[in-house]
Nucleic acid binder design. Structure first.
Length: 764
DNA sequence: CCAGTACTTAGGTTG
DNA sequence: TAAGTACTGG
């Protein structure tokens, strides 16, 4: 068992003691994942059947990587039999198997946040309520909190405290909305994210045989990031572990940063109460960061009142002090950080993937994006709008959803008139009203007007019926046709491809939208071809988990050498050699909303702790004295967290001022004409930057960057999507330069050079 | 029914 | 500022 020798003493005992309730408190960078991985591998070495192990992780990616590493120790075939994944994905699978108990179809749709909000908006409108008081986000948050605390619509309506709260918040009709929302979801055969946990609880509560089955099946349960579980998750785990009590939770109370979505830090503190004879292991040696970083972070987190006592330490070198840099504007902050990354990568011969820019809020990414683009540095933004939430992807997925589950109301709403087929809002509204009257789903109305008369003119009626027939024909193919073939068929027949393929306005965004659809389709193809013979290749199978996938889960087989931009929240569990933590200003970090309560402020502090401890070698903190917010410049104060770091760990740098350091003098590292541009486009679609400089920027030039790919008529080029082609025309100038290119396989395209992913093959 | 335009209002983190 | 919505004229 050589793997045991790779562990330090405290890690090893945590790996070896596999029986009974166990809590592992793991400081930042203390090898938590390694312990979890080896513990499971060790269990299997001792003869425990992987089918009896359930491991709940924070991201699907973490689960995948862990299975892979366990596979290296015990053999990949066996490792695959572990039930491993996020709460949401593991329990959605369990719910599909047992859906009939709850009256849901096994292919129930998973509504994402967009779907939920859209439905709530409808309901608020239908009830004629004030949409200012009942904003979809707020209403959903309220329902979500209720579900996370296992409060049904009925008990919600009867709870006096809740009634009072809602009355105070000027939302007296909340109970009615919750009830209707739940009913509409149920009728649509849909669960929202919170339902996946809520309904699992219902399942385990109301069906003792089901509970007993899973209690016997999962003799060993492991939960990662336990500090971020909410009440619903806590109860599921507790029930399932009740018979064998072989439950191992791993976490760090100092890194609890998800209370806003119901995470309850008390779960970790109450473990002792639930399992009095539990074993506690602490991992306190940090292997990741320098002494300066570890100790600076310790000093800050010590200011929190509520925490489990531990002393994180490291035997690593002192390393560099933490840099603190002030800039005058957010744009300057962007340029400064980008320049530093450029310089350091060159002087130290580093990969761009050694660098991360972390921020509190997604919108801060903008100034860094702009600067990185200008320096041609490849980057990837994580979070924000994920691939699956893009409009064109959601549109086509809605067809797939609707074909798989006709009752899916939100999918129907999305595509009944997309592409345009003359079915307007009023018609659809009347359908919804009729559906409510008859007590059926909208789909039943539109597929059977004879039985459910609706007040719609006959022309629209015919068009709707034609639409319903089309969907039915897709549904009929669902189990017969190969998923990829059906997806293609739907994309074509629905008119989506044509819609995105029209000859007019083929701007870069249209081109990319089309490319995204193609990417989705090729993803489906990959899915069907990778499936074993005994596994279903149906499109519905592909759809099962799509709503649960996030950007962080995307496999990165392509170019990994990019700077990472992400929120601190998404950086949890990751590490980078060089971390730039930006926007350290009062009201931004800590967030303005966290200033009113001690618990909120402590969570911000934990967030700061998480951010700093991502860094292995250097950590740079920046703040700006002014910042653009909603179009006007606001002044900003440095964050209190800067003051909370002991001066001995800090070095204050002054920003390199304009003299001789402006970007314009620097050459863009144009090794290949398209080098960085490609990756930026792959990373994320970005609108053309109209004026790149704004505010106080001192920068003088923003030349025809990107457009100076030296193309001439007659060149042969290669495009990521369209393959090889020949340039037939060049028009416009500067960043508006357009080229017409003839692709033998796709016809002639006109594209903006600034955005086209072109590679020049030759110039004969 | 649709497309273009004027207007309003954003508080933050995610599966 | 920018995105999303409501309105209005065709």
């Amino acid at each position: 068992m050589g793997y045991l020798e790779e562990l330090n003493d405290s890690q090893r005992v945590a790996v070896e003691n596999i029986e009974g309730p166990t809590m592992v408190i793991a400081g930042a960078g203390s090898g938590k994942t390694r312990v979890l991985t080896y513990r499971i591998a060790h269990m299997m070495k001792l003869g425990i059947d992987p089918f009896n192990i359930m491991a709940l992780t924070f991201t699907n990616k973490a689960a995948r990587e862990m299975v892979e590493r366990i596979g290296e120790i015990v053999g990949p075939g066996e490792a695959r039999n572990i039930t491993m994944g996020t709460f949401h994905s593991v329990f959605s699978r369990i719910l599909r198997i047992n859906s009939d108990r709850l009256g849901y179809p096994s292919n129930f749709t998973i509504y994402d946040t967009q779907d939920s909000k859209s439905l709530l908006k409808d309901i608020v409108k239908q009830f004629n309520l004030d949409d200012k008081a009942y904003k979809p986000g707020n209403v959903l948050g309220r329902i979500s909190a209720a579900k996370n605390n296992l409060i049904s619509p009925e008990s919600y309506a009867m709870n006096e405290d809740i009634k009072l709260e809602d009355k105070m918040a000027k939302r007296p009709e909340m109970a009615r909305i919750y009830k209707t929302y739940a009913a509409r979801c149920f009728k649509a055969g849909a669960m929202d994210f919170d339902d996946l946990l809520y309904q699992t609880n219902v399942l385990l509560r109301d069906f003792p045989d089901v509970l007993s089955y899973y209690q016997q099946k999962f003799k060993y349960i492991l939960v990662d990031e336990y500090q971020d579980t909410n009440h619903a998750q806590y109860l599921i785990v507790k029930k399932m572990a009740a018979v064998f009590e072989n439950i191992c939770v791993v976490g760090d109370d100092a890194q609890s940063i998800y209370s806003f979505r119901g995470a309850n830090i008390k779960n970790i503190l109450n473990f002792k109460r639930d399992y009095p004879d539990f074993k506690l292991y602490k991992l306190e040696q940090n292997y990741r960061s320098t002494k300066n970083i570890v100790e600076a972070a310790n000093g800050v987190i010590a200011k929190n009142k509520d925490q489990i006592k531990k002393k994180v330490w490291t035997s690593n070198d002192n390393g560099d002090k933490i840099s603190v840099i002030r800039t005058l504007t957010d744009n300057e902050e962007g340029k400064l950080v980008t320049n530093k990354i450029y310089d350091k990568s060159k002087s130290d011969g580093l990969m761009y993937s050694d660098f991360a820019i972390l921020y509190r809020t997604n919108k801060q990414s903008r100034s860094f994006e702009e600067s990185l683009r200008k320096l041609n540095i490849p980057y990837k933004i994580y979070g924000g709008l994920s691939f699956y939430q893009r409009k064109e992807i959601k549109d086509i997925l809605s067809y797939f959803r609707l074909a798989a589950n006709n009752k899916d109301e939100e999918a129907l709403k999305r595509v009944i008139n997309y592409p345009k087929r003359g079915i307007g809002k009023t018609s659809f509204q009347n359908i919804i009203i009729a559906a409510a009257q008859y007590g059926v789903s909208p789909w039943e109305v539109i597929s059977n007007f004879a039985q459910y008369p609706v007040n719609i003119n006959s022309g629209a009626k015919n068009r709707i019926s034609a639409f319903a027939t089309m969907i039915q024909s897709f549904s009929a193919q669902m189990d017969k046709m190969d998923g990829y073939a059906l997806a293609q068929e739907i994309a074509k027949t629905s008119g989506i491809l044509k819609e995105l393929h029209t000859d007019k306005d083929k701007g870069p965004e249209e081109v990319e939208r089309y490319a995204n659809i193609e990417q989705l389709l090729s993803g489906i193809k990959e899915f069907t071809t990778s499936r074993a013979d005994d596994e279903s290749k149906a499109l519905s199978e592909f759809m099962l988990d799509v709503a649960l996938l996030t950007d962080a889960d995307a496999t990165e087989d392509e170019d990994r050498n990019h700077v990472t931009l992400m929120t601190i929240h998404s950086s949890k569990g990751l590490e980078f050699k060089h971390v730039y933590l930006v926007g350290l200003e009062e009201n931004l970090f800590p967030s303005q909303m966290a200033l009113n309560s001690r618990t909120d402020l402590e969570e911000e502090r934990r967030l700061f702790y998480v951010a700093v401890t991502r860094a292995k070698e250097t950590c740079t903190l920046t703040y700006s004295t002014s910042r653009f917010q909603w179009g006007n410049l606001i002044t900003a104060e440095p964050s209190r967290f800067l003051d909370e770091i002991d001066e001995q760990f800090l070095k204050h740098e002054s920003p390199p001022r304009a003299a001789g350091r402006s970007l314009s003098g620097r050459s863009f590292n144009r090794t290949t004409p398209t080098g960085g541009l490609n990756r930026q486009l792959n990373s994320r679609s970005l609108k053309p930057l109209k004026s790149v400089t704004s505010g106080s920027s001192t920068e003088s030039t923003d030349t025809t960057f990107g457009a100076d790919i030296h193309l001439k008529v007659g060149y042969n080029v290669e495009h990521d999507r369209f393959g090889k082609g020949k340039v037939t025309k060049i028009e416009g100038s500067g960043s508006d330069t357009k080229a017409s290119i003839f692709f033998p396989r796709h016809g002639s395209k006109t594209m903006l050079l600034t955005f086209a992913k072109l590679k020049v093959l030759d110039n004969d």
